[in-house]
Design a protein around this nucleic acid. Structure first.
Lengths: 221, 221
DNA sequence: TGGATCATTTTTGCATTCAAAATAGAGATG
DNA sequence: CATCTCTATTTTGAATGCAAAAATGATCCA
């Protein structure tokens, strides 16, 4: 198994919440499961620590990083900035073909919304946002976006969704697609910011906080 | 020596150009120099690879990352986005005290400009940009900014500077300070973008390119 | 019974070792 | 003389082993 694959596997384990935030990362167990020794595992953990998904405590091992409200706010803020930038660049560079692809993804997502399939809706949602970021044609931007969204993903796609909020999100997505089709960079950038600001408010209001509170909730459950 | 320290030491070696872009990283030699064994060294290299400073070639070791023109453009583009965001946030959050500090740094930098001390000018320049980014009060943003600027630093502070360009840069910095003092987020953001766009043009026009061309130059030299 | 102290076990971090892969070099061949 | 092939050496990537640090828990004493 290649180094990058090890990193990816552990990242998935963390993002799936299989090792909950704040929990110790069981080295030996993971070694057995991934069928590797401690050396490559530890290399991967250091990389994930640099990404912010893992917290290293000298002489006390590693834990799945636990996000505070402040962390979450900061991450959303940066995510907004990155998506806004991506939106502007995408409008300058995107091909008609790519726009058509995103329009198709949008239609599919709306269909999932109509069917009330939240999971598929989130999948489609993510595909659209990633599509815009990729259309910016800037791999550096895409890579940073990937690490930032990875860190907030759990909260983002776990927050309960009221009908009103969901409807708002879908209408915002209509505007997003519209701006993209008009290649209105400033407009797209603006809408994306608002869209993410709303999402952030949802997440934070949902009393997200991977803090003692939700630790407690986990223990009770 | 702590893990983070090892990463920092190697990062400095790379940023100082002691191992030039594209060159193989001599594992054994670095081990001796840092007085560590290969295990922690390789952990650090993988982290630096994730940061983009090192390129890992499976079964062929690691090299100091070599930036193409495209990489440089992408990095500047992202840097612009991050600084623009930081500028907006800083205007909302910065204290009078912090503004005074940055004003002082600005005055010092102008003094270095008048004296024609390019190295000190660059130092001051960097302090101001970092000051603004830190004033945004967003550690996630600050961390991403640090990695992006690290990657372009060499080119940024090595490019030759014509009197015209230098004068322009200083006048832009006057405008930056001005916008900050007025807490004009939109204005600051706008100026920072223009400032970085100019810097990028300088660097790229200077025929930067850590490519075959400069490889050749290195070999000849 | 509560808590402090010290031995035992476990875990961590790193050096070393070992197998596999890549590179270099000598010799053969056209 | 250039090129190809096959072996020897080096280098890489990962498993193991070992010393130091931390966690555990057993014992003693107030």
């Amino acid at each position: 198994m290649l180094h990058e694959e090890v990193v990816g596997r552990i990242r998935d384990i963390l993002l799936d919440g299989e090792i909950p935030p704040g929990a110790r990362i069981p080295e030996r167990e993971l070694c057995e499961r991934l069928e590797i020794s401690r050396t490559p595992l530890r290399e991967a953990l250091k990389v994930l620590a640099a990404e912010g998904l893992v917290q290293l405590l000298p002489h006390r091992g590693s834990r799945a990083a636990k996000l505070t409200d402040k962390d979450m706010r900061d991450l959303f803020e940066v995510c907004q900035g990155l998506e806004a930038l991506a939106g502007e660049l995408a409008c300058e560079r995107i091909t008609d073909r790519k726009i058509a692809e995103i329009a198709a993804a949008h239609a599919a997502m709306v269909q999932h919304y109509r069917e009330g399939d939240l999971l598929q809706y989130y999948r489609g949602n993510r595909a659209i946002h990633e599509g815009i970021v990729n259309a910016a044609g800037n791999p550096v931007l895409a890579a940073l976006y990937a690490t930032v969204t990875a860190r907030i993903r759990r909260a983002r796609y776990v927050t309960p969704m009221t009908p009103q909020r969901w409807a708002l999100a879908v209408s915002e997505h209509e505007a997003i697609l519209n701006a993209l089709q008009r290649r209105d960079g400033a407009g797209l950038s603006h809408i994306l910011r608002a869209h993410l600001r709303h999402k952030r408010e949802e997440v934070l209001q949902a009393g997200f906080a991977e803090t003692e509170t939700s630790e407690l909730a986990l223990k009770i459950a």
